[in-house]
Design a protein around this nucleic acid. Structure first.
Lengths: 225, 225
DNA sequence: ACCTTACGTGTACGCCGTACACCTGTCAAC
DNA sequence: GTTGACAGGTGTACGGCGTACACGTAAGGT
């Protein structure tokens, strides 16, 4: 056995799939900002430029990541009305996004939908159309649902970087006077959580709440027409 | 008049305000990706490191930009019920965002709200509380509104980079078979626009449609409780 | 035996944010 | 008037990034 053979069997050949899976793994731990072509190459024990045989560039890599995540969303069930089918699928999408917290950011950064994403959207539209929505109403509903169709509301400042309690307490003290309404809300909700104040929301509940407001709203519009 | 004097009067001194306004101008034309500390310094005819006397780092600069944009949002009118006050203010926010198309992206990238943003949110919450919303319901509504409270729905793939018509036509042809529902929608809506297919939505209408679905929904919840 | 083709490598370029030491003009205190 | 602190712009440099481009090198078809 020559030295060449050792090297040859030591590394499985690069594939687009292997690249994508390594990228997902890298982003899952460490966040999307820690995903660089160079670090990805390093994780695959390969020189950075080698990646470019399998993805066109970083942007296309990111689109590939979106495809991976969207591919994890369950297909819609066919034995239910449009509303529950859509609701459940969106909640499935949300589960996928919770597994890959970077995904929503990356999806928003995309400028063009991939075939995988188009397929997802097409089947979602199908749920509405076969559920009795007119063409026009379907169109408006698509806009109204927006990114929620992919399982995420765009919450502002929902990051989980927890600060030290001392600074937080001081901040909330100052808030009492300056931002009375914010203070009022954040001091009364969810002190059952581990932190005394703030960020103790039941995200799943809030997501479903917002989703249902939307679904109920569009259902009413459907029935009216 | 010495040479020094000429130089001294040739450049107005740098200010945080001047830096921010130059950054806004740079981003307005050329997009947020063309805003780098180096280019910003160049636009101000100054060396890059000079900026750091007025902003802590690029992140803090971006937060400053958000403050500028949020500062452009009109205060809520006080002579109307909560619903129209909120509706009009959100539409004012949307106008500010349309003036600075990069702003929604930057806002989403923020990890911590600035005092200016907190002030905006506080007054929005105030509209709900004084409008008769319970603490709990107000809280849920905040989540449900999400980024829409700042005037933007997170539309996916709403960029305006128009491709050449030939490629577009080919794409739509292929879509007819693969994505029938998408095809159906995009070929029937808004051919009054300049482009034959796609991207011809009335964004203002769609935004208000979604906003009203939301507002009507929460109004119903309010009246029920 | 040769030539193509596929695919990993090495080097290099231009961009980025920013740390750090340095200069210089202004102004208060003596 | 001299001095010394300080505020604010400068210059240099470092490490990171994406990726263009030329170069091996091994496998497979002829």
């Amino acid at each position: 056995m020559t030295e060449v053979d050792v090297i040859a069997e030591a590394r499985t050949p690069l594939t687009r799939d292997r690249v994508l899976r390594a990228a997902v793994a890298l982003a899952d731990r460490g966040g999307i900002e820690s995903l660089s072509m160079r670090k990805l190459a390093q994780a695959l024990d390969v020189v950075p430029m080698a990646l470019y045989r399998h993805v066109a560039n970083k942007d296309e890599l990111l689109s590939g990541l979106v495809d991976v995540v969207v591919g994890e969303i369950d297909p819609p069930r066919t034995d239910a009305d449009w509303k529950t089918a859509m609701r459940e699928r969106i909640l499935s999408a949300r589960r996928a996004l919770l597994r890959h917290t970077w995904a929503s950011t990356v999806m928003e950064s995309r400028t063009t939908p991939t075939p995988v994403v188009l397929g997802y959207m097409d089947s979602m539209i199908g749920l509405l159309r076969t559920g009795g929505f007119s063409l026009d109403l379907t169109h408006h509903v698509l806009h109204a649902m927006g990114s929620r169709m992919f399982g995420f509301t765009q919450e502002l400042f929902n990051d989980t970087t927890d600060v030290d309690p001392e600074a937080a307490a001081e901040m909330w003290g100052a808030m009492a006077g300056t931002y009375p309404y914010i203070y009022e809300i954040f001091t009364t909700i969810s002190h059952d959580d581990r932190s005394v104040v703030g960020a103790g929301c039941d995200d799943q509940f809030e997501f479903e709440f917002a989703l249902d407001v939307m679904l109920d709203g569009i259902e009413r519009l459907r029935n009216r027409s």
